[in-house]
Amino acid sequence: MPSLKTFKQLALIGPTASGKTALSIKIAQQMNAYILSLDSLSIYKDIDIVSAKPTLSEREGIVHFGIDYLYPNENFDVTTFIRLYHEVHRRCLEDRKNLVIVGGTSFYLKMLIEGISELPNISNETDAKTKIYLQDLQKSYTWLHRLDTQYMSKIESNDPYRIEKALNIYLETGLTPTQYFKQFPPQPTVTEPLPIYQIEIEREKLRERIALRTKIMINDGLIDEICTLEKKYTRSPNCMKSIGIKETLAYLDGIYDKKMLSEKITTNTARLAKRQTTFNNSQFDNVIKGDVKMLEKLLL
């Protein structure tokens, strides 16, 4: 049984709708493993159909982490997944389990491997100052952009969460975010071997899978789910701008008919899949690539 000395983990990446979920469950069964999902929508409670998160029956008794972890109106960023990884890693050792990390949001996997910098402790005085600055978000963004163009150019001017983070760093330390992160470089979160397996799939075949999944989502009650989400959380949370949600809101506004809704979701998801593949191909080294059947044969 797994212990600190024998604990094994692997990561399975690939574009959306490429078959990661089903393969990860088979691998977890074979490996005696838990699953940590790296998915920017499945992490939310109440977002079920549009996130294509596996149902309880589809999980086949495998314990999943990173699913139904937060409510849609709660903020999260990469630190959430780093915290999650530490929790899951500890739990794996306690329960003598291995770990399969799976998801389409590979940026989080990259951050787990490379790590992030520790942020400074924020004093009550700095917190009070930051709150005053945040009252005029645009003015604060412009000011920060002049101080640290390199860092702020990666942040949207209407992103209060990241602007607050930049303000806290500068007001607490007197260092711009760029200077701070240079002085306090990131420390890797994952310190044990983590082989990465990447699902490859032909673009046309993937497009067909995405179109089919979109059709199934709509038939399974996607529109009702988005109506409920809007009523409960409004359109303000960042996740309400995600693919599948934003198109359905446009349908509810009368901008699309049902046929157009399906086409828009399919097209935008296919574009996302292309970006995911480009990211995966450029950001990771020594990745073992193959189609689902090849990887299944290799791993099982």
Rank of each mutant, 00 (worst) to 15 (best):
P237I: 09
P72Q: 06
T16F: 01
C227S: 10
Q138P: 00
D136T: 07
G14N: 07
A270L: 11
E172Y: 09
Y251W: 05
S106K: 07
G290H: 10
R91W: 04
T248R: 04
K165W: 00
T16Q: 03
K182D: 11
I35P: 02
K215S: 15
T105A: 10
K131S: 15
K5D: 14
D220C: 06
Y71D: 07
Q198H: 14
S3P: 05
I101Y: 04
T126N: 05
S153I: 05
I288A: 03
I47P: 01
Q276W: 05
Q29F: 02
K258T: 07
A166T: 04
R203E: 15
K154T: 15
I163A: 04
T105S: 15
V63N: 08
E263I: 11
E204P: 00
I132P: 00
D77E: 12
K274A: 12
D95H: 12
P54Y: 04
V190I: 15
N281Y: 10
D220T: 09
E296S: 14
V78K: 10
T178P: 03
I67T: 12
E156T: 13
V63H: 10
I199W: 07
T149Q: 13
P195K: 04
S24H: 09
E172D: 08
L41W: 02
K293P: 00
L38D: 01
R203Q: 14
I255N: 06
F181N: 02
V63E: 14
K215D: 15
V50E: 00
G290W: 12
S117C: 00
L4E: 13
L249D: 02
R235F: 09
L10N: 05
K26P: 01
T55V: 07
L36R: 01
T105N: 08
L4R: 12
I155A: 05
L144W: 06
K20V: 07
K45C: 03
E156G: 14
S18T: 07
N268G: 01
T6I: 04
V102R: 01
K8R: 15
N286Q: 13
R213M: 11
E164S: 15
T234D: 09
P15K: 01
S24F: 08
N286S: 13
F65R: 05
Y251A: 01
T130C: 12
K258I: 14
F279H: 11
